[in-house]
Design a protein around this nucleic acid. Structure first.
Lengths: 306, 306
DNA sequence: AGTGTATTGCTAGATATGAGCATAAGTAAA
DNA sequence: TTTACTTATGCTCATATCTAGCAATACACT
C-alpha cells in the first residue's frame, strides 16, 4: 500500500482565532481584506505548531497570548489551493487583552448576530425569524429524516420552549449552512431570505464559530476568562465579560458566590469607584488554581432559561 | 513575508487510537512491530481527514467505526522523517466493538499499569511507588518552581489525600516524561527505577495517553460508552465497561439511577440469565438522545474517592 | 437630604449526589 | 428441599449544589 509522492504534498496553514473583549464586546482579530482570520504557513524554523502560531501572532499584534489552545484541523477538498495542492489548516484559539479596538478587531456578533441573546428592547428577535425559516426548511413530514431535522433545529436554536444553549454556536452555524441560509452555503435557494451577519473569506466563519463554541463551553468548567481580564478587576467587570462571551445574562449573586467560593480570586485591597454606584472591591486572579485544579472543576453559571 | 517552497513540504500522517473493550479490558488496536498505533499517510483520494481515517481503518479491521473524533495534531521537530521532511500527525479517537481480542488488540494498561486503580489484592500499589520517585524528583525546596512541581505531582497522582482523577491520564504521562521515569524520555537519569509498562514506537504512547484521557473525560458528559456496547446489554455490563475505561469502581445503585433517569436506555423486554445471580433486564441505547441533547448533559458517575 | 446605581449578604426551595439498607430472583451446593 | 451465595433492583436519607429571589449597604450626583 505505497503512496505516490504526489499524494504527500500538502501545504500547512496556521489559522488563529484570537479573541479579546473590548468595550463589553467580544472581538476577533482579523486581517485586512475579506475579512478573514489571520493565517500563515507553517515554517521550518517554527519549533512546534503552537510555537509557530504564538510567535507569529505576537509579532503581528505585539501582545503575548496568555492562552493558546488547538482548535481543530481542517483538510476538506474545497480547501485545495490553486495548484491542486491540498491545504491543511490547523486552527488555534488564543485569548488576550487589548486596550483599544482598532479596525482589525471585529465583533463576534457582526458575523453571528443571532448569537447575542441579550434582549435589545424593540428590535425583532433574529432567532425567532431564523427559527421560522429553519422549520420551513425541515418540512412538516413525519418520516424519520424530517423528524430528526426538526428536532435538531429545535434543540440547537431553543425553539418550542427548549432552552437556548450558548455553547451550540457551531451546530447552529452548521445547520444554517445545510439549510442554505448563509451565503457561503452551496445549498442556497434563490427565494429564501438569508440569515443576517457578515461573512468571511474561505471557511473562516466556520472556524470562528468553532472558536466561539469552544470558548463558551470552556468558560463553564475552566478558569480561562481571566486571560481576557486586566490584572485587577471587579466582579461586575468579570461578569460583564462572561455575559458578553455567552451572549446571555447570568444571575449576579450566584455568579459572585460561585467565583468566590471556588477561591478563583483574591482581594487586592483596592476599590474601584466612579461608576455612579457603590465602589466595588478589586480582585486579582489566583493563578495558583491552574496548578491546584489541573484543568477541571471551575464552573461559571450561565443562567438556565426555562 | 514569503516562504520558500521548501518550508511547505510536509508529510501528513493519520494516526488512529481505536478502542474497544473485550473481556472487561479496554484495548487499543496496534500494528505489528513496535508496537505502534495504526497510521498511514493522507491520500489524495481521501475526501476528508476523517473520511480517510475511517475508510482506512474499516479496511484494516473490517469494522465500521461508530464514533470517530479528532484528537490532536502533532508536529514537533522530533517527528521529522528521514529526508528532513516535516511530519504532521493528525490523530483520531475511534470507538468500536469487536467479538474477540486477536493479537492486534493490546490492553491499555499494558502501557499504563498505574492507570488502573481497581485494587488488586496483594500487589504493591504502583502509584505509591511512582509517587515516591516523583516527589524525590520534584525536590524538597520551598522556592516557587519546586513548589509548583510538587503541587503538580500531588494533584495529578492524587498524593497526600488528594482525589485520584482518571481523566488526568495525559498529565500523568507527561509528568513521568519530564521526570525521566519513562524510557522514551530524554531527561532520564541512570540511577532511577523506571515506571512499569510497555512502550510504543515514536510518540505513540503519548498519543494513546491523549486518547485515554479524552475518552475518560468524555464518558462523564457524553453518551459515548454505548459505541462500545453490543446492541443489547445489561446495566451491569454497561457499568463494567465504564469501570474498565475509568480504571475505577463506581457506586452501583447511583450508576443505575443516573443512567435510567436520564432516559439513556430503554428495556428490550428480554432478560439475561446464567451469571449465577438474578437475571438482569436487557436494555438498548436510545440513540435519539444524540439529537435531543446535542452533545451535552450526560453524566456518568465516577466515584469520588475521599 | 433624597435618589439612583452598583455591590454585597442572605435564604427558601428545588435538584443532584454519595452512600447505605433492604428486597427480589435466580444458581449452586448441602 | 433447604440453605447459602450471587447478582439485580428498589428505596431512603443526609448532604451538597443550584436557582431565583429579597434585603441591606455604600457611594455619586442632584
Amino acid at each position: 500500500m505505497m503512496c505516490s509522492v504526489d499524494d504527500e504534498r500538502v501545504r500547512t496553514e496556521l489559522v488563529a482565532v484570537i479573541t479579546a473583549v473590548v468595550d463589553g464586546v467580544p472581538r476577533v482579530l482579523t486581517a485586512d481584506d475579506g475579512p478573514r482570520l489571520p493565517s500563515g504557513p507553517l515554517r521550518s524554523d517554527h519549533r512546534s505548531l503552537q510555537g509557530g502560531l504564538r510567535a507569529w501572532v505576537e509579532q503581528q499584534t505585539g501582545h503575548r497570548l496568555g492562552y493558546v489552545e488547538q482548535l481543530y484541523t481542517f483538510a476538506d477538498p474545497g480547501r485545495a489551493s490553486a495548484g491542486g495542492r491540498r491545504v491543511i489548516s490547523v486552527s488555534y484559539l488564543g485569548l488576550t487583552r487589548v486596550g483599544s479596538s482598532g479596525p482589525a478587531w471585529a465583533g463576534w456578533y457582526d458575523f453571528f448576530p443571532w448569537e447575542d441573546r441579550r434582549p435589545e428592547p424593540d428590535l425583532p428577535d433574529p432567532v425567532a425569524q431564523l427559527g421560522e425559516r429553519l422549520l420551513q426548511w425541515t418540512g412538516r413530514g413525519d418520516d424519520d429524516e424530517t423528524a430528526r431535522r426538526r428536532l435538531r433545529a429545535e434543540v440547537t436554536f431553543g425553539l418550542h420552549g427548549r432552552p437556548w444553549r450558548p455553547e451550540l454556536a457551531l451546530q447552529r452555524y452548521e445547520l444554517l449552512y445545510e439549510a442554505g441560509l448563509v451565503p457561503e452555503s452551496p445549498f442556497g435557494a434563490a427565494d429564501v431570505r438569508l440569515a443576517p451577519g457578515a461573512t468571511m473569506a474561505h471557511d473562516h466563519r466556520r472556524i470562528l464559530a468553532t472558536g466561539v463554541a469552544r470558548l463558551r463551553a470552556m468558560i463553564q468548567y475552566r478558569p480561562v476568562v481571566f486571560e481576557l481580564m486586566p490584572a485587577e478587576f471587579t466582579l461586575g467587570q468579570l461578569q460583564d465579560v462572561v455575559e458578553a462571551l455567552a451572549g446571555q445574562h447570568v444571575h449576579k449573586q450566584n455568579f459572585r458566590r460561585l467565583v468566590q467560593q471556588q477561591d478563583l480570586v483574591e482581594e487586592t485591597g483596592h476599590t474601584h469607584a466612579g461608576t455612579g454606584g457603590r465602589p466595588a472591591m478589586l480582585f486579582r486572579f489566583r493563578r495558583e488554581v491552574l496548578d491546584e485544579r489541573q484543568v477541571g472543576g471551575t464552573k461559571l453559571p450561565v443562567q438556565r432559561v426555562r
